[in-house]
Deep mutational scan, measured.
Amino acid sequence: TGIVNVSSSLNVRSSASTSSKVIGSLSGNTKVTIVGEEGAFYKIEYKGSHGYVAKEYI
């Protein structure tokens, strides 16, 4: 489990790349469930599926 550490919002992406499609966003202080790691990204549970967020903001 981690907490989103941004002042505005954090993009949730379809894969572990900054060039991948943005599938949603999370507000600061949102609790997320981390299910894996891939490079500079965490794989998280997101809306019944999975998404990826940059580690530096969790």
Rank of each mutant, 00 (worst) to 15 (best):
V6R: 05
S25P: 04
S9K: 13
S14H: 13
K55T: 04
L10Y: 04
G48S: 08
Y57P: 03
N29P: 08
V12F: 02
K21C: 08
S8R: 11
V12N: 00
I58R: 01
L26K: 01
T1D: 09
G39R: 05
A40L: 13
V12D: 01
L10M: 07
Y57L: 09
R13L: 15
I58A: 02
T33M: 12
E37I: 10
Y52S: 01
S17P: 01
N11P: 14
V53H: 01
L26M: 05
E45N: 08
T33H: 10
L26F: 03
S25C: 11
V4A: 05
S7Y: 07
G36L: 05
S7H: 13
E37G: 05
G48T: 07
V35C: 07
G36E: 06
E45D: 08
R13P: 01
I34L: 06
G28E: 10
E56N: 08
Y52E: 00
S20W: 06
S25T: 14
G39S: 04
K55M: 08
L10C: 09
T18R: 11
S25H: 13
K21Y: 10
K43W: 04
I44L: 03
A54W: 11
R13I: 08
K21N: 12
V35Q: 06
Y52P: 00
G39P: 03
A16L: 04
V22L: 08
V35T: 07
V4F: 04
A16Q: 03
F41I: 01
S27F: 09
E56L: 10
S7W: 08
S14A: 14
S14W: 09
T30I: 08
S15M: 09
G36W: 04
V4N: 03
Y57K: 07
Y46R: 00
G36A: 09
Y42P: 00
N29G: 14
I44Y: 00
K43Y: 05
G48H: 07
S15W: 09
V35M: 10
Y46T: 02
Y57F: 14
I34T: 02
N11D: 15
S8F: 15
E37T: 11
V22M: 06
G2K: 04
T30C: 08
T18D: 15
F41R: 00
G2W: 08
V6S: 13
I3Q: 08
N5Q: 10
V35N: 04
E38L: 07
G28N: 14
I34D: 00
V32D: 00
L26H: 02
E56D: 09
E37Q: 11
K43P: 00
G51S: 02
T1M: 15
Y46E: 01
A40F: 08
V32A: 02
T30M: 11
T18E: 14
T30Y: 06
K21M: 12
G48K: 07
Y42A: 02
S25M: 15
T1A: 09
L10V: 15
Y52W: 12
S20M: 03
S15R: 11
H50E: 07
G39L: 06
S19G: 13
L26A: 02
T30A: 13
V6G: 13
G24L: 04
F41A: 03
V53M: 02
A40Y: 09
I23P: 00
N11E: 15
N5S: 10
I44G: 00
L26D: 00
G51H: 02
H50M: 10
H50Q: 07
G39N: 08
S17K: 07
G2T: 06
T33S: 09
S20D: 04
T33Q: 10
N11Y: 14
T1E: 13
K21G: 08
S15C: 09
S17M: 07
A16H: 05
G28I: 11
E56K: 15
T30K: 06
V53S: 01
N29L: 10
Y52D: 00
A16V: 06
I34E: 00
S25E: 12
G36M: 05
S7L: 11
K47W: 07
N29Q: 12
A16I: 05
N29F: 12
V12Y: 02
I23Q: 03
S15N: 11
G2I: 08
G39H: 06
N5Y: 06
I34Q: 01
N5H: 09
S9C: 11
I3N: 06
N29Y: 12
F41G: 00
V32P: 02
S17G: 07
L26Y: 02
S8I: 12
K55W: 03
R13Y: 15
S9A: 14
A40R: 10
G48F: 06
G36R: 04
Y57N: 09
S9R: 14
V22D: 04
S7K: 11
S19N: 12
I44K: 00
K47V: 06
H50S: 07
K55S: 05
I58K: 02
I44D: 00
S27G: 12
V6W: 06
T18L: 15
E38Y: 09
L26I: 11
I44R: 00
K43L: 10
H50V: 12
V12P: 00
K31R: 13
S14C: 09
